[in-house]
Amino acid sequence: MRLLSIELYKLWHNRISKILIFSYFILIFSIAILSTIKVEIGPINFHLADQGIFNFPYIWHFNSFMIGLLKIFFAVIIVAMIGNEYSYKTLKQNLIDGLSKEEFLRSKVYAILAFVGISTLLVFLISLVLGGIYSDYNELQIVFSDLEYLLAYAIKLFGFFSLCLFLGLLIKRSAFALGFLALWQIIEGICFGLMKWKLSDLIPSHSAEQIFRFFPLNAMGNLIKEPFSRLSAIQNIADQIGEGFTKDYGVSTLNLCIVLAWSSLFLWWSLLLLKKRDL
């Protein structure tokens, strides 16, 4: 608690991070705005909320995916909270004042956990309310099924933020760390492309995908698959043109484990990096 309060104190008194944190949580609420989208052009009367996106239990999937896209906002805060400690040299001062390197890292991790917790709770509440208003099914059994998407959401965020924390520590400068994060995404894509292209002679192409699912960012992305093609409206269209989907939209335990393993690796590397470095 002491470590968490130290970190929150640092964030709370920084106007920029305060604004970012608030806007993040406000943006989460903005998903509710989707429900008000109504298009009325002559005979076509389209109301997004009526398309079933807010049906239980599908809403858990839809909201956790959509709100998950906002995580990049929070990545900025996390990378900045590490970058600042380096550029203000306050990391050095914190250590001199008697914070151990491990405690320093723990204070950051606790802050991340707190925000992941709040964020997940918000997703839960918003989905519950939106679903309550728009869902066609309101039986308790259906309402509270498929809650594993929330677990996946929390772990996805935690994994992503651990990566941000590690990159922040590794690179020390917030802007470069964010750039590197983007680069990482591109490198993963290139690796996948190369594997598919070059290794296809050696191994069948699906094994490239098998390997690729162990890449950190891809593993995080795989946790919650895109929900759009699961919408009944789109499914219907697909059926009509004879392209039926047989996609598994579930949350796979293996993916959860991969992301958790990456998170612990990132945190472990962060600690090693902190311990090894002279300041």
Partner: peptide, 11 residues
């Protein structure tokens, strides 16, 4: 105190 004073500038 080492070399230069290091504090959070925004506080």
């Amino acid at each position: 105190i080492i070399e230069r004073p290091n504090f959070y500038p925004y506080m």
